[in-house]
Amino acid sequence: MEFQFAYFVDQLINGVTLGSIYGLIAIGYTMVYGIIGMINFAHGEIFMIGTFLTVIFFMLIIGTITFFPLAVLIVLLMSVLLTSVYGWTLERVAYRPLRGSPRLAALITAIGMSIFLQNYVQLLQGARNKPLTGILEGKDDILRVKYDLINTLNAAGQPYLVTISNLQLLIIILTVVVMVVFSQIISRTALGRSQRACEQDRSMAALLGINVDKTISMTFVMGAALAAVASLMFMMHVSTTDFFVGFLIGVKAFTAAVLGGIGSMPGAMLGGMIIGLVETFFGAYFNQEYKDVATFTLLVLVLIFRPTGILGKPDIEKV
């Protein structure tokens, strides 16, 4: 009994960690969808670029900066900055000219950009995996420090220790901090107000003197910045990346955004958590191979019974 509880707690921690990463990426999808109503299919690739930037920056500074937390901070800032440039450019080059075109055109462009960016990174950095552990060579030991939570015996009578590591704590705390900062930006600042205004009625916002282009650009920048934060977490958690890593994570994060109710930031975070937990628990208790099937089945069920997602506003058909 106690073992089962311990196992559950263990999986819960894993699920929340994973869910934080999904949630942060999902916010990027949800903000863009909220404001221009398109699936930014290339957002997963922005995340993927973030993972590569993380690798490159660690590679560059890990030799000179020996205090690891400082190194993490520098890498985080640099990668947020430069990933944002990718987000901005993506919108400027590929999406802005298509505003007002058929919706499918924007979607195809987004898929095209996604394919382009994958191959761009593959050409420049090679197709092989890039494991961060191989680069850090143990300098990140501080993150691996674990705190015991539950100490029990498993079914076979061997000791079973449930722990939470500095890394997991860092991911969860960082997610909370980032969420708080972002919700403050959205609710308090002029930029946030502009974003909410554009979300409701873009042409009216423009008439009232809001710079719609700039607001949309900033939305992409914010989304990319969050993806960069998520990519740093991902790299320290999973450690390895390749040019294709963005696809599945992107799809799952979008699923999370839809699940939580597209357009809603808390919804995206909640959706991310649910996806992370479902995936972890399904893998832990039922079947590791079919965990993605479980995720998508959940999505279908939610959409059938609550088409606007968990926290989405109910969408009464206006005729």
């Binding site: 969808y33 799809v251 979008f254 839809v258 079919y290 099937v293 999505l299 279908v300 088409p307």
Partner: peptide, 24 residues
């Protein structure tokens, strides 16, 4: 079950089906 969903939701669900079939 899903054809009543609106455009983009249908897109993501069908994408999910594609992946589900492949995983299966």
């Amino acid at each position: 079950p899903v054809l009543r969903l609106r455009g983009d939701y249908l897109a993501i669900v069908t994408l999910g089906f594609g992946e589900m079939i492949r995983v299966t």
